[in-house]
């Protein structure tokens, strides 16, 4: 093991990069963004762990539990809105493949509107709970419930701002390397938030409803 076997003939070896290869900007950016999304996934995993620890009967300290106020059909409507938003974004990205600018804008607009529907339903739900006196200060269990769902909603909120910014950039700049790269990373972000919502819906809302 003391030396690494030499396999290249030094007389003929290629010493410099003569092919002038350039790095693919879009693939480098999407890789970095994928890594960021991994850390975002870890963030939600930790929040789910906290929710798991704080969703025992005693965590609610005799106060309200999700079983008392969760309406599965209401949150199902949120689910459909968010999924349709991701679908609309997907149609927009399909238009991007055909360099169809108006198709992309329409898809993103639909994704934006459906995302707003999701967020409005969420805010309405939260204000309804607040009017019943249920806040994150009610008990440890309610703290975990509120923070997990609202951290997800915050992600949706910033995603919506991002969609608006990207619509403006596509309209002013067209399909450049930068805008296309950002459209791809936004798609990854938007899709991941929908995937996380699946877990929120099942483990927080449905499980909370039946337990």
């Amino acid at each position: 093991m003391s030396s690494h076997a030499s396999t290249v003939d030094p007389k003929k070896a290629e010493l410099w990069d003569t092919h002038h290869h350039s790095h693919d900007v879009i693939s480098t950016r999407t890789l970095g963004y994928f890594l960021y999304l991994l850390s975002d996934g870890m963030l939600f995993a930790t929040l789910f762990a906290a929710y798991g620890v704080l969703s025992y009967q005693h965590s609610y300290f005799g106060g309200p539990t999700p079983a008392e106020f969760v309406k599965p059909w209401y949150t199902f409507a949120q689910t459909i809105a968010l999924f349709l938003s991701v679908l609309a974004y997907g149609f927009g990205m399909n238009a991007l493949k055909h360099k169809n600018k108006s198709g992309l804008i329409n898809g993103m607009l639909a994704a934006f509107v459906l995302g707003v529907v999701f967020l409005v339903l969420d805010i309405h739900d939260m204000s309804h709970l607040y009017s019943m006196g249920i806040t994150l200060a009610s008990s440890g269990g309610m703290s975990a419930f509120m923070v997990l769902t609202q951290v997800h909603a915050t992600h949706i909120f910033f995603g919506l701002i991002w969609i608006l910014v990207m619509m403006a950039q596509v309209m002013t700049k067209g399909f450049t390397e930068e805008t296309v790269g950002r459209l791809l990373t936004l798609r990854m972000f938007w899709h991941l938030q929908a995937v996380i919502w699946v877990f929120v819906y099942i483990f927080v809302y449905l499980w909370g409803y039946i337990s």
């Binding site: 906290a50 200060a137 440890g140 703290s143």
Partner: peptide, 15 residues
């Protein structure tokens, strides 16, 4: 005013 780690109100210190 959440109760993640409070001693009462359903918080969990060791969490």
């Amino acid at each position: 005013g959440a109760h993640f780690f409070t001693a009462g109100m359903g918080g969990n210190l060791m969490l």
